[in-house]
Design a protein around this nucleic acid. Sequence first.
DNA 1: CTGTTAGCGCCTTCAG
DNA 2: CTGAAGGCGCTAACAG
Lengths: 329, 329
Amino acid sequence: MTTAAHRPATLEDVARLAGVSRSTASRVIAGTGFASPDARDRVATAAHRLGYVPNPAARALVSGAGVRLVVAVAGTSAAVLDDPYVHRVVGSAARVCTPAGVGVALHWLPLGEPTGLDQLARDRSVCGVVLVNTTEDLLDAIPRSLRGRVVSIGIGSPTVPSFDVDNTAGADAVLHHLYATGRRRIAMVTGPQWLPCSRRPVEAYRGLMRQAGLPERVLPGDFSAARGRAAAGEALRRWPDVDAIYAISDETALGVIAALSDEGVRVPSDVAVAGFDDIPLAAMTAPALTTASHPVGRIATAAATALLDGRPAAPVTLFPSVLVARASA
Amino acid sequence: MTTAAHRPATLEDVARLAGVSRSTASRVIAGTGFASPDARDRVATAAHRLGYVPNPAARALVSGAGVRLVVAVAGTSAAVLDDPYVHRVVGSAARVCTPAGVGVALHWLPLGEPTGLDQLARDRSVCGVVLVNTTEDLLDAIPRSLRGRVVSIGIGSPTVPSFDVDNTAGADAVLHHLYATGRRRIAMVTGPQWLPCSRRPVEAYRGLMRQAGLPERVLPGDFSAARGRAAAGEALRRWPDVDAIYAISDETALGVIAALSDEGVRVPSDVAVAGFDDIPLAAMTAPALTTASHPVGRIATAAATALLDGRPAAPVTLFPSVLVARASA
DNA sequence: CTGTTAGCGCCTTCAG
DNA sequence: CTGAAGGCGCTAACAG
């Protein structure tokens, strides 16, 4: 801790100063194996005085561990990597990986050609892969050698633990809220068709509409605000009596509200609008957005932690999605 | 590319299959040094057939390079690491670092005790540090051994290249817009006091107000939407004639608008509101937010790229901040 | 132009 | 309980 040595101390330096062998120093610093209290103490002191910081790269090399955790995002174009959702996942992952000496990498998995995973499987610096926007095809394409080192934020499989929000329950809660507050002409803006986890809310919607004897009005979406704007216009045109629009993303919902306002339609008196995610700004818009929460940070943290821990995770970890009733619906 | 070998191929395997030495294989794969067209070809073929992927950790170990790029964020609490702005920086950095086999780590630098940097300096797995929320104290505390491996998103120093948005010009543009559209009682909500780059807009504001003979009305802020809500109330109470509120963050501006709406104050007819950043949602709120753009992604990309390239960057790289006039002001 | 020779910093059997 | 020895996968001088 004293001198800012120009050449950072190595384990060798610590061992020499402590008057022990590298092996012993290694044991006490890694906290593995035996060491006498005396040795333990001298090594600790030496390490402290030298300001010794272990080199994760060397450590990984010898133990075959890997120094990078890869966030692999499926999508139609590399632009998915700029998505705020993806950034939240990467940020949260980086935060938990840092203390372990692991860095985070960000990969794009082009939809329909899942060979990208093969390369990751052969990269010995990769300690694990977090799949985002997981599809069935993707799960099928996971190389055997990656087994046990892959988790999914979204759907999983017998060999790939899933960390996900309870989409169905979240959608149900919002839809019930809409119904309970008197809405009967409810339109829905979906997520991307190819994304499994955006199908569940649609099923929930169709089920409830059918059950209540209400018309089904589905508009395809892509989670974007721009799509929300367009979808609102379509909804108004096709179904002038619409009294609620449920979007599967807060961004989209805000786009819907913006378009509605432009058209002179009032929210929520004329048309109620609800979203999904509860992004930080959802509480700050006018009107404040009614939505279901989606703890992205906690999910990503759990997924990354499972990988770092190494031991097999539960097949499915579901995070609750709770209704947040605000002004927009 | 053929077999998904259970044990990933090493350079040794490639060399053997190609019938050359490890060194030669290394040269053609790393693209460094000489190699006959023949050797080059055979190694390439072998590597391809084996699906060889170099191990960045081993490579870094021997070349002394480092496998992690650290995003180090100064702040009063570790909660800064959850900031959307920070996540954007990390995401963008991860994207450019990935092809280089470098992972991204995320560190919190507690304000006022800059010893965190010492530890980073001694970690041989760190190839570079991107400072976020840089303060003068932080710049002073950078260990010599880190020189040339640190860049700053924010203020810099003779030894630390700065990548930043042109705050002054951005603030000027917004303020002039406010003035040009007839606003004369302009209040401002600042960023955190300790953050150097949030001081420049304040100076711009004071300068312009003084020059125009208008009253100075400054409210301390912290970039948060919650603070925006509170600040709007204060502004209304202290200066009932206020006709514009300029916040140094879009989140804060949206908080201001929300509070104003709650109070029955109309935006922009009663009070104009402007922000700073142009976050994606700024165009989707009602009213759409007038702001100045802040290309966080490009800035972070440039900063990370400079570190990866290794060669000294320009002392200051300024990104333009352009006025985006929408409905709120 | 190519192969040989040394390690990078660390962990992990093994004898002692 | 401890030290000696070997090697993780790769690159960087060197001689040939």
